[in-house]
Design a protein around this nucleic acid. Structure first.
Length: 467
RNA sequence: GUGAUUGUAGCUCAGUCGGUUAGAGCGCUGGUUUGUGGCACCAGAGGUCGUGGGUUCGAGUCCCAUCAUUCACCCCA
C-alpha cells in the first residue's frame, strides 16, 4: 500500500474532457486554415538524435533540451575520467537522444532525408507537442503544442503574405479581434547593426566589440522596459554613445506603415542589406493587399527581433492586445539555410507557429469559448432491473444505429443516481424503460432541460432527439 | 542559474498576540422522495496543518533546513 500522492512533472498538464473540447476547437480552426492554404500534414517522432537537435538553438537552447538517458546500462560506455571531465563531456556518452524542442528542426531533417521524394515548393503543417526544460511560469510550459506551417523550396514573398492571411483567418475563426501581427526583417536589423558598428558575427569569438545579437536582444525589450533602459542595456553591452545616437532615429519612426517603412529606408540609406529588407517588407505589404486583406492587423515593428538564430528574412510575432498575457501566441519567419547544417544548402523556407496553449489561455482570459462546446452523450437509457436492461440494450443499439450517441446506465442503481449522472454529464435526454413501457412500447422520453416527460414510441424518440 | 511567493479537508481558502476539541464554502455520501436530476432542508464522512529538526509548559502560528508550488529575471510558443 503506497500512500504517496500522485503528481505531475513540473510544467506539464492533464487535459480533461472540458479542456479537450476547447483545445480541439482551436486545433480544428488552425488545421482547417492550414489545409485551405494547401499545406499537408506531417508528423515526426517525439525524440530525435541529439546530433540533430544540438547546436540549432544556441547555447541557451541546448541547455533547455530534454535529454533521454540511454536504455540499459547507460554507464557502460563511461569511465572514471568522464565523470571528472564534467557533465558537458559525460552527456554524449550517456544520452544519444532528446525530446524535440520545436517542429522546425525535425522538419528540416525530414526534408533533407526525403529530398528526392519531395516535390518543391513543399508545404507542410505539423501539430505536435514539443518539450523545453526551462522553468515554467505564466504562459510557459515544459510540454506544449506547436502548430507549424512551413513552405520550403521557394523564396517567393507570396509565402510571407499568405502567412499573414492565415494568421488573420485563424484569429477570425477563434473570434479573437484585438491583436497585432508584428513584422520585421532580419536584414533591416542587420542594416542597423552595420550602421552603428555592431559588426561582430555571433559565431566569432568575443573580442569586446558588441555583436549584432547584443543589439537584437536589447532592442527586442523595447515595449517591455522602455527606451531609456534599452539604451542603458546597450551601453552595458559595449555600444558607444556615438552608436546610440545613430540608433535614435530608428525609434522615432512615425505615421502609417508605408510612411514608416519609407522613413526607415532613409535612415538606413547607407546600408545595402538594410534597404533590401525594407523592399522585401514593402512587397509583403503589397502582396497582402493583393490577396484581399486590408492588412490592418499588420504592424511594422523595427524593434522586433525574435530569438531563434536561424531566421534570416522576414520575421513575425503575434500578440493579443487586450489579454492579461503579454507573451506572443504565435511567431515565425524566413530562414534561408536551415537544411544547410544537414548538408542540403540553398533551400529557403518560411514558416509560422501557433502556440495552442497560449491561445487557450488568452481565450479563457477573454471568455471567448462557446458555452456548450462540450460533446457528450445525447441519450441515456435508464436501467431498472434485469428485464429492463435486456430490453434497453436492444433500444440502445437502435439509437446508435440511427446515428445518435447513446449509453445505458451500466447497473440498476437508484433512479435518483442515474438522473443525477445524466445531469452532471450534461446529457440532454433520458429514456425510461420500465415494465409498463416495455409492455406498451411507449418509452418515457424526458427532456432534462425543460423537465418534461412524455411517452413515445422509439421512432418518435429518435426524431425528437435528432430534431 | 538568480530573486521572491505560497504550502491547512477532494477543490478554493479562513485560522487573531503561540493557548487546550483546526473551521467555512463548494464538492462527496445518505435522507426528506423504494419510478425521476437541478432547487431547498436535514444528517454524515473526510486533516500526520508539505516534510524533518529546533525554541516553548504549550506550535497550524515563531526559528532553521528541505521538498514542492506559483510569479518574475534570462530566454521563449
Amino acid at each position: 500500500m503506497s500512500k504517496q500522492k500522485p503528481s505531475l512533472p513540473k510544467g506539464t498538464r492533464d487535459f480533461g474532457p472540458e479542456q479537450m473540447a476547447k483545445r480541439n476547437f482551436i486545433l480544428d480552426a488552425i488545421k482547417e486554415v492550414f489545409q485551405q492554404f494547401g499545406f499537408q500534414p506531417l508528423e515526426t517522432p517525439s525524440m530525435e538524435n541529439l546530433s540533430v537537435l544540438t547546436g540549432k538553438y544556441g547555447d541557451e537552447g541546448d541547455q533547455l533540451l530534454f535529454k533521454i538517458l540511454n536504455s540499459g546500462d547507460f554507464l557502460a560506455k563511461t569511465s572514471e575520467k568522464d565523470f571528472q571531465d564534467g557533465a558537458q563531456r559525460l552527456l554524449p556518452k550517456i544520452a544519444e537522444k532528446g525530446l524535440r524542442y520545436d517542429l522546425t528542426v525535425p522538419f528540416a531533417r525530414y526534408v533533407v532525408m526525403n529530398q528526392h521524394d519531395i516535390t518543391f515548393p513543399f508545404r507542410r503543417y505539423q501539430i505536435q507537442p514539443v518539450w523545453r526544460a526551462d522553468r515554467p511560469q505564466k504562459g510557459r510550459y515544459r510540454e506544449f503544442y506547436q502548430c507549424d506551417a512551413d513552405v520550403v523550396g521557394t523564396d517567393s514573398l507570396i509565402c510571407e503574405a499568405e502567412i499573414v492571411l492565415m494568421i488573420e483567418q485563424v484569429f477570425q475563426k477563434l473570434n479573437i479581434q484585438d491583436y497585432t501581427i508584428k513584422i520585421n526583417h532580419r536584414k533591416i536589423l542587420q542594416g542597423i547593426a552595420e550602421s552603428i558598428g555592431a559588426q561582430g558575427k555571433d559565431d566569432s569569438p568575443r573580442d569586446g566589440s558588441p555583436r549584432e545579437s547584443d543589439l537584437l536582444v536589447a532592442l527586442d525589450k523595447l515595449d517591455k522596459i522602455g527606451l531609456d533602459q534599452v539604451l542603458q542595456e546597450l551601453r552595458d553591452r559595449g555600444f558607444t554613445e556615438e552608436a546610440l545616437k545613430k540608433l535614435l532615429p530608428v525609434f522615432q519612426l512615425e505615421g502609417d506603415e508605408s510612411s514608416r517603412l519609407h522613413h526607415a529606408r532613409e535612415t538606413l540609406a547607407s546600408s545595402e542589406v538594410g534597404k533590401q529588407g525594407i523592399s522585401a517588407l514593402q512587397q509583403v505589404f503589397s502582396l497582402v493587399h493583393d490577396l484581399g486583406s486590408s492588412g490592418e492587423k499588420l504592424a511594422f515593428d523595427i524593434t522586433l527581433a525574435r530569438g531563434l538564430s536561424y531566421y534570416t528574412g522576414t520575421i513575425f510575432e503575434v500578440k493579443v492586445n487586450n489579454a492579461s498575457m503579454t507573451s506572443s501566441v504565435s511567431g515565425g519567419g524566413r530562414y534561408d539555410n536551415l537544411t544547410g547544417v544537414f548538408g542540403m544548402p540553398g533551400v529557403s523556407g518560411v514558416g509560422i507557429s501557433f502556440g495552442v496553449d497560449r491561445l487557450y489561455d488568452v481565450m479563457e482570459d477573454l471568455d471567448l469559448f462557446a458555452k456548450e462546446s462540450l460533446t457528450t452523450t445525447q441519450v441515456l437509457l435508464v436501467n431498472f432491473d434485469a428485464e429492463s436492461e435486456k430490453h434497453a440494450l436492444g433500444l440502445l443499439s437502435q439509437l446508435r444505429g440511427a446515428g445518435l450517441s447513446a449509453e445505458i446506465y451500466p447497473e440498476a442503481a437508484k433512479l435518483k443516481k442515474q438522473f443525477a449522472y445524466a445531469d452532471k454529464k450534461g446529457i440532454p435526454y433520458i429514456v425510461v424503460v420500465g415494465a409498463e413501457e416495455i409492455r406498451t412500447q411507449q418509452y418515457g422520453l424526458k427532456d432534462l432541460k425543460t423537465g418534461t416527460q412524455e411517452a413515445l414510441p422509439l421512432e418518435a424518440i429518435i426524431q425528437r432527439v435528432k430534431q
